[in-house]
Write a protein that binds this DNA or RNA. Sequence first.
DNA 1: CCAAAAGTGTTCTCAGTACACCCATGT
DNA 2: ACATGGGTGTACTGAGAACACTTTTGG
Lengths: 275, 275
Amino acid sequence: MSTPETEEQPMSATAPEGYDATAYPPFAVTVDLAIFTVRDGALKVLLIERADDPYAGAWALPGGFVEIDEDIPDAAWRELHEETGIDRFAGHLEQLGTYGTPGRDPRMRVVSVAHVAFAPDLPDPEAGSDARTARWFDVDDLDLPGLQGSHADADVALAFDHAIILADAVDRVAAKVEYTPLATSFVPEQFTLGELQHVYEAVWGTRLDRSNFRRWVKDSTGFVHPAAGTDRRRTAGTGRPAALYTADADGPTTLTPPFMRPADARARRPTQETS
Amino acid sequence: MSTPETEEQPMSATAPEGYDATAYPPFAVTVDLAIFTVRDGALKVLLIERADDPYAGAWALPGGFVEIDEDIPDAAWRELHEETGIDRFAGHLEQLGTYGTPGRDPRMRVVSVAHVAFAPDLPDPEAGSDARTARWFDVDDLDLPGLQGSHADADVALAFDHAIILADAVDRVAAKVEYTPLATSFVPEQFTLGELQHVYEAVWGTRLDRSNFRRWVKDSTGFVHPAAGTDRRRTAGTGRPAALYTADADGPTTLTPPFMRPADARARRPTQETS
DNA sequence: CCAAAAGTGTTCTCAGTACACCCATGT
DNA sequence: ACATGGGTGTACTGAGAACACTTTTGG
């Protein structure tokens, strides 16, 4: 942790040798969330429209202050619930990274712990729920730094450094579905293999061979299994009804072998070297 | 970012509706570093011995306060330099994650942005350099949560939540060498393929087939190439001298195909789901 | 001569790829 | 009938795994 190594190492001018517990540089700490869902075959992210300055009228990731006695994950789950109504454990939430460049918020020094959340297709946020607009955006319609395939509609300007955070978040999602069963977080509890395949195709922006996809999924241990009890089938428009599957609850957290996306799929941006 | 969404979302009691720029919960922000090197065929991490309470006598990751006008990567590089003398760009440094559970530092609310650094074999830290002990520890000699192979010598107690951070850091290192050329950050500028193989073996805690390793390395594009100019060879004790190689400077940041560690290698712990 | 490490080649196997074909349903 | 998507099987190919053998040095 970040134990103030008082006499062990020279502190900055703001926290000198004989410091007392209040003599440290005071930061504001917030959480920001990139909340993803897959819908209409596309990867969507939830953005809210800012009503006030700075960046009034711009779109931003939902987020807010961490309370002084609140753990960071708790703050993230709280924000997620406030924005989407998703209950704890009904979705997946993980830390993405921390963004704290001085000046990123013009008002004060803010360090934001960004998070990524996945959820099955969610309803449209209720516009009037708290006087502010919120919308699902197709990720490909946003102009994100370092991401190809952006046929940027970009009349959507993102506030603060949220374009960077969101680009990192998209990379994270694409990478995680490769070696974890997290793709199942994007589909309802019971799902068809076709639906699951659509998740991969949306996240990676590529097309997969149906036959090989099925074989890989069914050969992966601890990933999915035929839906218990009612072995019914579900229709998805036209065509033959599909068998239903469920995610293995006790499955491993990393898939072996991983499902590698084809090399031509959406390029992975490297982890930011902090240089 | 974490823009305080003033009227957009209800703030906590500490940052209520009509807040002013000073009315936010004040946090201390620090950086902690897990600095790794490979030596004697083992993965080593640099720890410092705490002289004072809390956790006097315990070992801890080096770290310190972020200054109020200092960017987080700058603070991490500064700490790295103070601890090891490594200059910017002479090693690899990246953000690992942020740890901010209330009470992790008994004195105040501290949020620490942990980092991972790789460097070639470094000299022993000078004990007298600033009155405090610092040592390289074999990672396998530490008792880290969720990591197998710990024949824990564990008379070494880690301060704060540093055991958790360090365990996460070890995972990160193991995962990164799989799909990035970062293993070359652990060896000198000119190195033999045997030395490079030792890095993988140390990080993964496994043995690799020499022949297959060479083939994979040489077939990977943008990874290594024969040492320029002097095509000399270097001896490593006894045996035939080996050809020298250099990392491709302009290489890709992700290797294709990745070099998968064998399934029996040190298990990867999943990304912490923030639940 | 022997040990140790570098360097080269060869076989075997299995997973990913591509593709062909049948099945069940809606219109 | 035909379009649409589900479901199954098969042949091809290339990369990883295992292992045998040669080369160059120090002792």
